[in-house]
Design a binder for these strands. Structure first.
Lengths: 335, 335
DNA sequence: CTGAAAGCGCTTACAG
DNA sequence: CTGAAAGCGCTTACAG
């Protein structure tokens, strides 16, 4: 691989001159610059970004830490993050944590060592050691779908899960339902907690007390929703509607109901959260709450870019609005 | 940020000694090594991977070029690629090309400049210039779901699309169907071509001539399948079965059939290709051909790793077998 | 086992 | 406008 030195020798100029041509430095004659550029082409010179990084202290790489790229949410966000970042000359290093603390820490360590310029993170388990690394990072950090810990003044970008849950609940309530079940994601899930908070608050706001037998916490998959629906029908048979904390759970519920010949929405209204592609399928048409996934990725990247150009370690957080998507799985309660 | 020099000064030893401690070099007394390691902790020293890369000519970075991370196939592969690579100390830089040549080239250039150690690529449009860069790369390259150009002796990892299509067709044929329609993906799609080849060959093998009015090329989405089904029913009404080149198309077909009250599989058998999660949904139960997606990513990473450790620029390609998944959308033709 | 020195491929004051 | 020199943070022969 030819280096800047080879180019210089080839032309009988100094490396400084070659470097100046490479970097569009003003202090160089147009003619020499052209000659250098041509010589580079001729001998197939490619600048070594590693050497440049060492000196400039800029690696032009951004780290992206997500739980699971296989989750349509994160892949949608990863898509837009990459798009806006690469359009701005950055490359993105991505890591699936698989929701494992060990992997989160490995990522953060790598961020330090590799001198990444900034990161976008969706951590699940940051412990004290991980936080300590984050504090020492000295680069822009934006939290995606997670809140930064109290003592870290870092921005986040997320959807307003609480408000979204309230939209869903208010809709159900407006339809006359009062015995509404809830299917939650695993208890440690931040988004799950927020949606649950919306469920409880909306009920209370109307003077209704959430019935513990109408609440089930399981996983986040279709199979979980299926199981949960069975359990709810057993424990809370008077229920007329169910709020599933995500679409997958809602679809599992729909499946259980279809198999048990309980008509939707006549016998049971079902509302989800996420607006997955599948939810719009002809056979499903799940009423749900949509989140602007791609926009979330885009915004996260933009906030990071802004911090990078303004050379700041903090910025305004963004809470994006959700949108109720009314399809065919909810109806007013039969009087 | 403290450097190796700070550690050395702090301890009154030379930087060589510090470096040796850092790299588990044998030529160092255990005691000094411990002291150095402790000092590093004390002053929060983190090695600078950029500087190390410059000298070692290893960036420990692998590039991953895919068309669209949002496609469940690529996200599944990206997941496993990251998993095996990161377990081996590599970080992965990923790029969505969005099937644009310009982005493919930008990626390749970046690979050169950033001195990546190897790449896994799924290109759609490599032109001469792009190929020229690949030839000069001098690092291991593995093609994922694509074939390398003739003159590049590089390995690929893929599923045997042709064989998969034959499985699907043979199944339909064994069920007694002879008027079988075909829904293809965009004509430039390599995988689409291979599946089409299987469709044609299997028909011919049985002495059947593919009927041009039974073949439609559109896009790769549900909406395309919906449209395609309408067109097929118009142009080739005697058709009793349809082979959709991917599940999304198959699902679109199913949707059209459901809306037009044509029963599946009695009136029309439908078979897909891909085995997406949705295809197993209670309402869909699409018979299809499964591809081992995650395994594909894993294998691609393993082949790359092998080339890296053996220091070779080529390796054995891998063609993974598909599997026919029989569900509920195909039946034998009514005599 | 330890240290001084050269060098990886660049950039950037500093002189001229 | 151009070049010589120092230096980014490391590693690695080479001496001792």
């Amino acid at each position: 691989m030819p280096t800047i030195k080879d180019v210089a020798k080839h032309l009988g100029v100094s490396v400084s001159t070659v470097s100046r041509a490479l970097n569009n430095h003003p202090d160089i004659k147009q003619d020499t610059k052209n000659e250098v550029l041509e010589a580079m082409k001729r001998i197939n010179y490619t600048p070594n970004a590693v050497a440049r990084s060492l000196i400039s202290r800029k690696s032009n790489t951004i780290g992206l830490m997500i739980p699971d790229i296989t989750d349509p949410f994160f892949s949608a966000m990863a898509h837009d993050v990459e798009e806006v970042l690469s359009d701005n000359g950055y490359q993105v290093v991505y890591v699936n944590t698989s929701r494992r603390l060990e992997k989160e820490k490995r990522f953060l360590t790598s961020v330090m060592e590799r001198k990444m310029d900034g990161i976008i993170v969706t951590p699940d388990f940051l412990d004290e050691e991980a936080l300590e690394i984050m504090r020492r990072l000295e680069i822009p950090v934006v939290f995606l779908r997670r809140r930064p810990p109290q003592d870290l003044d870092m921005p986040f970008v997320d959807v307003d899960h609480y408000e979204g849950a309230c939209n869903a609940m208010d809709y159900l309530l407006s339809l006359g339902h009062s015995r509404i079940g809830f299917m939650g994601m695993p208890p440690y899930s931040f988004t799950g907690q927020e949606r649950y908070r919306g469920y409880v608050d909306c009920l209370k706001k109307r003077g209704l007390e959430p019935d513990p037998s109408g609440i089930v916490w399981d996983g986040r998959t279709i199979a979980c929703g299926y199981r949960a629906m069975g359990k709810l029908m057993e424990d809370y048979p008077s229920m007329t509607a169910v709020f599933a904390a995500n679409d997958l759970l809602g679809i599992g519920a729909l499946e259980w109901l279809a198999e048990h010949k309980l008509s939707v929405p006549e016998r049971m209204s079902v509302i989800g959260f996420d607006n997955l592609e599948v939810s719009d399928l002809h056979w499903i048409k799940l009423t749900t709450v949509a989140q602007p996934r791609k926009e979330m990725g885009r915004k996260a990247a933009e906030v990071l870019l802004q911090m990078l150009t303004e050379n700041k370690l903090t910025a305004q957080s963004i809470l994006l609005p959700t949108k109720l998507i009314i399809r065919e799985t909810c109806t007013s309660v039969i009087k």
